[in-house]
Amino acid sequence: MTAPAEFAGTRRTLSTRSVTSLVSRNGAFGVLVVVMVIGFLTVPSFGTADNLRNTALAASFLAIISAGMTFVIISGGIDLSVGSLYALAVILSADMSSHGSWAAIGVPIAACAFAGLVQGLIIARLRLPPFIVTLAGLTGIRGLVFYITKEGNSHPSVPGKPFFETVSRGSFLTIQNPVWIALAVFAVGWYVLNRTAFGQAVQAVGGNDTSAALMGLPVRRVKVIVYAISGVAVGISGVLSTGLSGGGQEARVGNAYELSAIAAVVIGGTLLSGGVGSIVGTLFGITLLYVIQNLIVQGFNLNSYVQQVVSGVFLLVVVILQAVFSRRSETE
């Protein structure tokens, strides 16, 4: 603890700085703590082990997608195709499960990785804006999903109890496997971003791709790979979802997931302009979104549209705070 007298003198700058770093670096974490404490205190059903477990399980699918999205956004891009790709993975996984577990796991992940790779190649090679290219992906892949499912009328389900179902439905230390897998994805993501040369290049490219090219970094390769990473993450998420549900999901599954994933990344402190961000922040961001949603349902018994309003307001507040503080730190 700092001596009170010393603290008083520098209180203002300290508090400004601590708020700045709180918001920009681990704002989501701080808010998450506050929200959870409020939840524990005011909503009895929120703090039960069952409820927390279920919330974590529900969050894990979008969490994995958001981890991939973090790479794309830090590199200065955006991936709007993840919602549709998720649906593709879900449907493909159920379709393929008749050929065995490995097909149900491998084919969707490979297909999503391929889709990400193609989008990345178009973005990097033809220098097209990622927004437009992945918007085309969003539309086209959703269309493909409806085509595969015969205009959404077929709901392929998983026969029997193959291995990949048990992966999704099993648990370890009473926590379901998808939650562990999501945490593992984040651990790997953190490692790649912070402990490999590729991760350094992702951050440099997002900061300024012209400068990165002048420094001799493989800018185009980085841009291609981040979209492939996003694709792989979406594929994993979709496979897990099918394993858990046993198939039968609708063709419109994963609708607007891209927006939730982007929101989680931004709330986690990653700048949409690229270059600055943290994958740990994203984990807190997505958790926060689900905790708030859960609290609204459990405690306040509001309908899902109100949840959306609250989430929207919350996102706006975070973005405003980010802008205010990044401007302040510039002028300092």
């Binding site: 350094q200 290049a201 440099a204 900061g207 961000g277």
Partner: peptide, 15 residues
């Protein structure tokens, strides 16, 4: 425009 988020050492060895 090196990478502002990265440490000095990481910037020196970037790439």
């Amino acid at each position: 425009h090196l990478a502002p988020q990265l440490s000095i050492a990481r910037n020196v060895f970037l790439g």
